[in-house]
Simulated assay, not measured.
Amino acid sequence: MLKLNRIHHVAVICSNYEVSKDFYVRVLGLTVLNEIYREERDSYKLDLAVGGEYQIELFSFPNPPARINNPEARGLRHLAFEVDDVEASVIEVQAKGVQVEPVRIDPITGKAYTFFQDPDGLPIELYEK
């Protein structure tokens, strides 16, 4: 049987590299591990650390198609981050100019969670530990 140890990374393609880099580094506070420009693809690749265990790869490509919002399409639905305190995290994200949905409680787990969007409309969830 295939043995998967953990998720290694999630790859995100952005429409404006500098705007998305600022969002993931300044707003979300992720740490840059590596950044390269791949001239043959006219593409940046930015490796970001999440909690010392996971990574997000941020890519730029010329003219990527827009994300489908509604109806929801197959594939990645959203990116979720675990936080210690959703309410405190919301205050911090809002202070950086990001609109955040009201905090809700998961009826199954009883945990608080909320959503906001990255610069390209990718839903990002904060889920309480």
Rank of each mutant, 00 (worst) to 15 (best):
Y127F: 14
R38M: 14
Y54P: 03
D42Q: 14
I36G: 09
P107M: 06
V90T: 09
K111H: 11
R77L: 11
P71L: 11
Y127R: 09
D118L: 04
L122H: 07
K45R: 11
I68Q: 12
E128G: 05
D85K: 06
L126F: 06
V12S: 08
R77P: 00
V50G: 03
L48P: 00
N34Q: 12
V50C: 13
V100S: 13
H9T: 05
S60I: 01
L46I: 10
V98T: 10
E128H: 02
V93W: 00
F116I: 08
R26H: 15
S20W: 08
E125L: 08
A66E: 15
S43I: 07
Y127C: 05
K129R: 15
D84H: 01
Y24E: 06
A112L: 12
P65D: 09
R104V: 13
V10E: 12
G52V: 04
R6E: 10
A80Y: 04
I13G: 05
L28N: 12
A95Y: 02
V98S: 13
M1F: 11
F116G: 05
D85W: 03
L30K: 04
I105D: 01
I108Q: 14
T31K: 11
S15R: 15
H9L: 04
E87T: 10
G97A: 13
K111W: 04
V12Q: 01
I108F: 14
S15C: 11
A49H: 00
T109L: 10
V98I: 15
E87M: 08
L126Y: 00
E128S: 04
R77N: 14
L46P: 05
Y17V: 10
M1V: 10
N70T: 12
N70Q: 14
E35L: 04
V19K: 14
V50Y: 02
Y17C: 06
G121E: 07
R38H: 04
L58N: 02
E35R: 02
F115S: 08
G52F: 00
E53M: 03
V86I: 07
I108V: 12
P65E: 12
R77G: 08
V50W: 01
L58H: 00
E72M: 06
N63W: 06
E53D: 05
L48T: 00
D42N: 14
P102L: 15
A66C: 10
S43Q: 14
G75I: 00
A80V: 04
D47K: 01
S15M: 11
Y113C: 04
I56H: 03
E40F: 06
P102G: 15
Q55G: 06
D47W: 07
S43Y: 01
D22T: 08
V12R: 00
A11G: 15
I13D: 05
A80M: 13
N69Y: 08
E92S: 13
T114P: 01
E128C: 08
N5F: 07
E82G: 01
L58R: 00
K111F: 07
P119W: 03
Q99D: 15
Q55L: 08
V10I: 15
M1G: 15
K96C: 08
